[in-house]
Amino acid sequence: MAMQIKLEHVTANYKIGPLLKPRVLDDVSLTLNPGRITAVVGSTGAGKSSLLKVCNGLLIPSEGHVTIGSKEINSKTSKQSLKTIRKHIGMVFQFPESQLFAETVGEDIAFGPLNFGTDQRRAEQLARKALQQVGLDESILSKSPFSLSGGQKRRVAIAGVLASEPEVILLDEPTAGLDPAGRKELLTLLKRWHDEEGKTILFVTHDMESTARFAEDVIVMENGSVVYHDAVRPLFENTRQLKEWQLDLPEARRFQLGFEAQSGIHLPHVCLTEKELMDALIEVGCV
């Protein structure tokens, strides 16, 4: 079974040098269902990235604690024990391609496993496997990461995290800057990895389409608190609540509501894709 992540009354402050931003997370309690894909949404500055960071020990709770598998992180956790946690919880930052550094793609991807103590041969095997998981050809292993296109670089950076064979992968805006087709491709690859390996994915996004199409669960954050944590579809039912949280609707749902308001016809289901919308329109005999 995949690793469980549990937050209990977690409060965290963000500190850079002498500056302190208090309570970026404010008494957050939640249990991440293992083996699920969960999207984290909310307006800018709501604490989405901070939530990801406490899940792998990059941000240490000032109060409360985080349990990852059998390990607990609280304000007294030592740095050494965090390393073993990070081996199991992979983190993909915003614009991860800016962190590529090695001379070849192969070295870059193998760096993670080597760093966690894997031997050279095994690390290379893992690198090849990870490259395949992100849908890239082995022929680029010997290329410089800097010769690749933006979308390819992004995938190499993600492969670098997958190569350490994490139990959970945390991604901060993984599709920012990709075109809609590239976005879909990347999420499909991640979903395939999730389906095959049965592991947990937690990703931050602004994109309600990605949320509607790829996530199973959603966490909505507001001012450092979790205000919703449940399945995707019920979230998009309550439009008044969504407005309050400043969240957008997926396009199909927006269209559906516009149609229902003007026609006076109520479609039988909450529609999240154009296919569902078409089926509903056919069902009520509108087209």
């Binding site: 003007q262 016809i265 087209v287």
Partner: peptide
């Protein structure tokens, strides 16, 4: 998608509000 599935649709690209109007009218 509607066109592909043999349903009648406006002939060219319509904005969202135009397509909604069209659907209401055809209904």
């Amino acid at each position: 998608l509607l066109l592909k599935n043999g349903r009648s649709v406006p002939e060219t690209y319509s904005t969202e509000s135009d397509l909604i109007k069209w659907l209401c009218k055809s209904n």
